[in-house]
Each structure stands twice: as C-alpha cells, then as structure tokens.
Simulated scan of single mutants.
Amino acid sequence: MPVPGPYGAWIATGTADYVLYQQNTTKPHQDHIILHEVGHILAGHRNDEDHPDEALWQQEMPDISPRTIRRALRRTSYEAVEEREAELIATIVLGWASVLDHVAPHAASEPSLRRIQAALGDRRGWL
C-alpha cells in the first residue's frame, strides 16, 4: 500500500543531487518517479517559493538549507509548467528505454564475437 504524501523529491545540495522516491510501489512506478525527478534536473528547474510545510521539514532536516527544502516542496501538482516538463521527460526516456530493450543487440555468447562487440562499442541506439 503506497504511503501518503509525495512519491518523489529532488534535493539539490552544494555537492550532490539526491532523488528520493516511494519505496512502497511497483518497480516501473519507481522508475517513473526517479526519471520525473531527473527531468527536473535536466530541465534546470529552480524555483524557491515558500511552502507551508517548510518549517516542519527544516526541523526534521536541519542540515539542509531552507532554499533546498523550498525547491523540493514547491512541486505538488501538475498545473505547473515545470511539473509537466518533468513528466514529459520521464515519459520520453521510459519510452525510448522500452524501445531500446527490444532493438538493442544482445551480447554474443561466443567470446570472440563479444570482443568484436566490445571493440566496436556496445551501441544501444542514438539516445
């Protein structure tokens, strides 16, 4: 049973980006959540509006800056352009990944052919 609340969050710090995702859901849904958050990173979304839960999160995670918490909490609906962009990125990446799963060459079982594949590069498509 899914836990109430956001399915995922992106927390950017000065040294790393962290993507948090719902543990109690299916693997395909987790993949989509993660790619949605990565979509925010790829699109360069940076919005630091105030959020009503900011004080609670700051109390729970005092080592994370209020600006970082605001950025993570601002995304709560798909009305925002940034949310639709992140969702589109996740959908496109998952779509291409499923296509590449079907068309990408599999590793050869013969050792000499595997060496040739390695020399030529393991091309998985132009994505």
Rank of each mutant, 00 (worst) to 15 (best):
P4E: 12
Q22N: 12
H32L: 05
L100N: 01
H106G: 13
A97R: 05
P111W: 09
I92H: 06
S109E: 15
R74V: 06
L113R: 09
R74N: 05
Q59W: 10
E37Y: 02
D122Y: 14
M1D: 11
V99H: 03
V38A: 12
P105K: 05
D50Q: 08
D63E: 02
V103A: 00
H51D: 12
M1R: 12
P28T: 02
I89K: 02
W57H: 07
L94T: 04
I34Y: 02
A9I: 09
H32E: 02
Y78G: 09
P52I: 07
R84P: 00
D122R: 11
H106D: 14
T68D: 14
V93F: 03
E54Y: 01
S98M: 02
Q22Y: 07
R75V: 01
V19T: 08
R67W: 11
I69S: 00
L113Q: 10
L56H: 13
R67S: 11
P2D: 08
R71C: 00
H36I: 03
A108H: 10
D122E: 12
W10T: 02
R46K: 15
T26S: 11
I69N: 01
G5R: 09
P105L: 10
R115I: 08
V3L: 12
E79I: 10
Y18W: 15
I33V: 05
Y7H: 15
S109C: 11
I89F: 04
A80M: 04
H36Q: 05
G125E: 06
G44P: 09
Q59S: 14
P62I: 05
G39E: 01
N47D: 13
N47E: 14
P52K: 06
H45W: 03
Y18R: 13
G44Y: 10
E37N: 04
N47L: 08
Y78S: 12
L94K: 03
W57T: 05
L94E: 03
S77R: 14
P62K: 07
P105C: 00
E37S: 06
Y18A: 12
D48R: 15
A12K: 15
P62G: 06
I116F: 06
Q59I: 11
N47Q: 14
H40K: 02
I33F: 02
R115F: 07
L20P: 09
G5E: 07
V3R: 14
T76G: 11
V81R: 15
P66T: 07
E37D: 08
D63I: 01
H29I: 03
V103R: 04
A119E: 05
P6Y: 11
P66A: 09
L113H: 08
R123L: 05
P6W: 08
Q30W: 05
T13D: 06
P62E: 00
A90G: 05
R124V: 03
S77D: 15
Y7D: 13
I33Q: 01
E85S: 06
H51I: 05
L127R: 13
H51E: 08
V93L: 08
W57L: 12
T76K: 13
R46N: 14
E83A: 00
H29Q: 04
S98Q: 03
Y21H: 14
A43G: 07
